[in-house]
Amino acid sequence: MQQGTGKQRRKWRIWHLVLAILLLAAGGVAYLYQQLSRPLPPGIIPAGYTPDLQNGRNMYLAGGCLSCHRGIGPHAELPAGGRKLKLRRGEITVPNITPDPETGIGRWRAIDFVNAMRKGLGPDGTHYLPSFPYTSYAWMRTEDLLDLFAWLQQQPAARNPVPREGTWGRYLLAFWKWLALPPRPFRDVPGKDATWNRGAYLVVGPGRCAECHTPRNTIFLLDRRQWLAGAPLITGQGRAPSLRGLKRRGRYKDVNDLMQALKYGEAMGYQDLSAGGMGEVQSNLSKLPDEDLKAIATYLMSLQ
C-alpha cells in the first residue's frame, strides 16, 4: 500500500510539472508574439523632416509599387489596388494605397507607413502577408520611406474598397518575420564607391530584385548563399533568371549596355525585358534618372 501511494504521488507530481512547463511555454510564446508584433515608435522619425518629393517619386518607381497596386479601369494609372495576385496557393486582392481616407491610406501617419514597409505591420497591428515585399523594403532608409509616403499622399485619391483576406496564419507571420526581416536598414559597404553602393541599395531595398531572383528555402526565407542566382517564380510557372555573371555569360557587354537595356528595353532590341513581370519592372525603371540606372547596372554587373 505504501508503495502504491508513492507511485500515485509521483504521477501527480509529473503531471503538475508537465502542466507548468506547458503553461510556461505558452506564456513564452505569447510574450514573444507580443514583443514581435510591436511597431516602431514615432520617435524614429527625424523631427522637422522635410520630404523630398522628387526622391519619393523615384522610390515609387524603383519600388515598382504600381506593378502590383495598379488599379482597374479609370484607376489604371493609380495604385488603387483591387487586382488579384495569383500565388501558388490561392490568390489575394491587392490593397488601395492612394490617399483616399476611407479605402486607401489617407488617414495613415508617416510612422504607420514606416511600420508597414519596415515591419510588415498595419496601423491596427495586422501582420501583412509577405506578398507585400516588406522583407526587402525593410532595407530602405527612413528618409526614403518618408519621401515616398509624402509623394504617395500627394497623388490623386481613388475610392476603391478592397477586402482584406484574413487567415489565422497571419499570427504565425510574426515569428516568420523575425527570421525574414533584415535587422536594420541598408548601410553602405565600405571600400565600394558611391555609385556601386547606390546601385546595391536600389537593388536590395526598393528594387526588391531578390524577391524573384533569389531562391528560397522550405520556410520561404531567401537563400543568401544564392543571392540573385535565379529562382523559380512564385506563380509556379517559369523562372527568374540569374543576375550573376551577366558579363561573363555574355548577357550584357558592359555597364552601359545593361543600363540601356533597363532604360529602353525592347525599344532598343533587348528582348527578354518585355514580357511578364520584368516588363512591368522595366516600365517603371525606364522612368528613373540615368544616374540611378547606371548605379543599378554597376552593382548588377559586379556580381560574379
Binding site: 506563380t235 510557372q237 525592347e266 525599344a267 518585355s274 514580357a275 511578364g276 516588363g279
Partner: peptide, 14 residues
C-alpha cells in the same frame, strides 16, 4: 514590339 509584347506575350518558360 515592346508595347505589344508587354501586354500580349508570355515570358519564356511559362
Amino acid at each position: 514590339c515592346m508595347a505589344c509584347h508587354k501586354k500580349f506575350r508570355k515570358p519564356k518558360g511559362e
